[in-house]
Design a binder for these strands. Structure first.
Lengths: 192, 192
DNA sequence: GCGTTTTCTTAAACTACATTATTTTTTTAC
DNA sequence: GTAAAAAAATAATGTAGTTTAAGAAAACGC
């Protein structure tokens, strides 16, 4: 069944009865995207938080000169959005694109706000999701400040081996904050 | 009254009745610290999340060679902890020190867990706190990846003018991920 | 208030990573 | 399956930020 994965994801932190489950499922909108589709474009209001049923997504910032910085990858079982713009319902800073064919569940801001009041347990669920996201970003900041590009690359490979297989090297480079050319040099050095 | 500030902080996102208020206050432990005191040392279990009534705090990572990276500053009205180690009740990666004489309210992990079950509104409160922290860190990652040290410095000055006045330049440099010498050069350039 | 310690500044030499350009390899489109 | 496009590798040159060192200014301890 299609909904299994998101319910399993929810059940890691809270448990729902039948009514709650069916209400929750009723506010999700499922959409299929082919690979290389933009699901959120910078400037556009970011209306949904998104659960990846299957596929691979990438969120990235594009600076005024066109240089891309990858902010996060999301694979099956992850939540992804431009959180800042989703919460404030403002034009997105980030772009989110599919890297593989993907099946996404969209949850609208207004439906989430209603969900919090109808089923307060979801406050707990998203408190934990936000907490984990904060911890992840904080660790990334520490690593960006204290480690060399080479160290960050090998940590990335260890931490996200699945992602590393699915995405282009230039996208990994842009996640690490280096050029594809320099990542290429790092990889060439490993045999020395 | 001493407790006013934390109650005002809470009331930004949820409202408490009298019983709830007094229960919440009863689990906070207030402590005074002189300037340059360590309130959390790396390696020690991080048992509390901390609210700054007054003063200034700094959380930093010290790498094996002794180089420090400032992860965050906290002034009056902010919450601060080593979130990763607080949540998992593990040895801290970070150190937290006072930069000025400070008055801190400590909230223990076990009391917070109980608070969530006794007054579920606090799930909402900390959901919002975590969400804001996540958004802040994500924006910091974007800026670290896409901007020069000079640009990051001027953004820091604009965003945290209060902090900038209270902390040493070498601490700002370690927040930006550059050496104090290079920050000094950036500042010298501003007149050119 | 004064000596000591820490921080800040300046400057020269150095390095991690960027840029540009070219070639080779992989992916994509039909 | 093959041509075209995109990505990856390699290498030379360039630069943002580091390191080291030394002097000046500010903060600290008593």
């Amino acid at each position: 069944m299609i909904e299994n994965l998101v319910l399993k994801n929810i059940s890691k932190h809270i448990s729902l009865n039948e009514n709650e489950t069916s209400y929750f499922l009723s506010i999700l909108e499922e959409k299929k995207y082919a690979k290389k589709n933009i699901i959120l474009q910078e400037g556009e209001i970011c209306r949904t938080i998104n659960f990846v049923q299957s596929g691979t997504l990438r969120a990235f910032y594009r600076d005024p000169e066109g240089k891309e910085s990858t902010i996060m990858f999301a694979i099956s079982d992850w939540w992804i959005t431009d959180m800042s713009c989703f919460i404030n319902q403002q034009p997105a800073m980030l772009n989110i694109e599919t890297i593989e064919d993907s099946l996404i569940l969209h949850l609208k801001k207004e439906d989430l706000d209603e969900l919090y009041t109808k089923i307060p347990k979801f406050e707990r669920f998203f408190r934990i999701i936000m907490q984990n996201a904060y911890i992840r970003e904080q660790i990334r900041v520490i690593q960006n400040l204290s480690l060399s590009a080479e160290q960050r690359y090998y940590i990335f490979l260890e931490k996200y081996p699945q992602v590393a297989k699915q995405v282009r090297q230039k996208q990994i480079a842009s996640y690490l904050g280096i050029t594809p050319e320099f990542l290429s040099m790092i990889r060439a050095n490993k045999n020395k």
